[in-house]
């Protein structure tokens, strides 16, 4: 029996040492140490032996089992280290091949900039209001102090559906609709599409505008300046040069045109700013008493300001786009850049 055990250990150790891979070791483990393994069956035979023989042989069996287990663990460990090393050596990829990407999508640059403008004003406590794109002449012109047969109508070439119905030329009619239903104090922006009968490098028959207005007691022209400076600094950058100059819009008085320092030449003069060093960015002014009349506000009690900003123009300046028509051609090679 002792010889058998010693022979078994010798065989097992020899075979284990010769084992070429992990699988053979595992196989040998089962063969010698498994439930039906050789060593296990010898252990079973031990119970038939007398007490003292059983004890000494039992110890030997256990020792052999321990040694074999140690050997197997070491071998398995070695093989697994080697396996890992081999896999690291063989699993080298060409990392310059392009990655697997989900399809690319983008938000239109005009909507992105519009969203940016909305966020700034929401942050300043302005509400968002909307109105119809097809409007009555009354809301688009007359209530805004632009009567029929007034030359100011030339400033906005209009698409008509019939004599009284038109495509809004600005989002200012929302001002009237809103003020007709709400009382001051109010702070509102009205974003949306507007339409003018015009088409060239810098005009499309449809474009986007955000109109804003604020009405309360004691609102001043200085407030208008202050608020628009905050807006333009947030939209562009903090130190941007800004100037206010007189202009004319029938719905406001005093009216102002607001310019920023040219983003391209920084004021030295270039093609984009027509050598003036400034870029027209928005129109604004104190709401005209006639407009307050249209909505039954007491213009001796309330004052307010309104402003309108063209989104395409800002988008063009931000991204250096020189042809406004690109926005509505929707060529994917254009859209994927934003």
């Amino acid at each position: 029996m002792r010889e058998r055990l010693e022979q078994l250990e010798e065989d097992a150790l020899r075979k284990l040492s010769a084992a070429a891979d992990k699988d053979i070791v595992t196989e040998l483990k089962v063969r010698y140490l498994g439930r039906k393994g050789e060593l296990t069956s010898i252990t079973r035979e031990l119970s038939k032996l007398p007490e003292d023989e059983r004890r000494s042989l039992g110890k030997l069996t256990n020792d052999i089992k321990k040694r074999l287990e140690e050997k197997i663990t070491t071998l398995l460990n070695d093989f697994s280290v080697k396996e890992q090393e081999d896999s690291l050596k063989s699993g080298i990829l060409d990392i310059t091949l392009p990655g697997r990407r989900p399809p690319l999508g983008r938000i239109h640059p005009v909507t992105r900039v519009m969203g940016e403008v909305e966020e700034i004003f929401l942050g300043l406590g302005f509400e968002v209001a909307e109105g119809p794109e097809v409007e009555l002449d009354y809301y688009n012109f007359e209530a805004l102090n632009i009567p029929k047969d007034h030359p100011a109508r030339d400033m906005q070439d209009t698409f008509y559906i019939d004599n009284e119905i038109l495509l809004r030329t600005h989002t200012s009619p929302v001002q009237i609709r809103y003020m007709k239903t709400c009382r001051p104090p109010l702070r509102v922006i009205a974003p949306g599409k507007v339409y003018r009968r015009d088409s060239d490098l810098s005009h499309t028959p449809m474009f986007h505008q955000v109109e804003g207005f604020m009405v309360d007691e004691g609102i001043t022209f200085g407030d208008l300046k202050g608020l628009l400076i905050v807006f333009l600094q947030s939209l562009f950058y903090k130190d941007i040069g800004i100037r206010f100059r007189p202009s004319f819009f029938p719905l406001t008085e005093p009216s102002a045109e607001v310019d920023i320092r040219c983003l391209i030449c920084e004021g030295k003069g270039c093609r984009v700013c027509k050598d003036s060093g400034w870029l027209e960015i928005l129109g604004a002014g104190m709401i005209h008493p006639e407009v307050f009349n249209s909505v039954d506000y007491d213009s001796t009690k309330y004052s307010g300001f309104a402003f309108g900003v063209g989104i395409e123009r800002i988008t063009m300046l931000k991204f250096g786009i020189d042809d406004i028509r690109l926005f509505f051609e929707n060529d994917l090679r254009f859209l994927e850049q934003f």
Binding site: E118, L122, G125, F126, E127, V128, E130, P185, R187, M214, D216, G218, I219, T220, F221, G222, D223, K225, G226, L227, I229, V230, R243, F244, R245, P246, P254, A256
Partner: peptide, 25 residues
């Protein structure tokens, strides 16, 4: 008066406004 004073000479101020909830819709 504003025009000949020059808009640039009118001091910028920030409007006093009551804080109110905003809703985007």
């Amino acid at each position: 008066v504003a025009r000949l004073t020059s808009y640039e000479n009118i001091p910028s101020t920030l409007p006093k406004a009551r804080i109110s909830p905003v809703e985007k819709g």
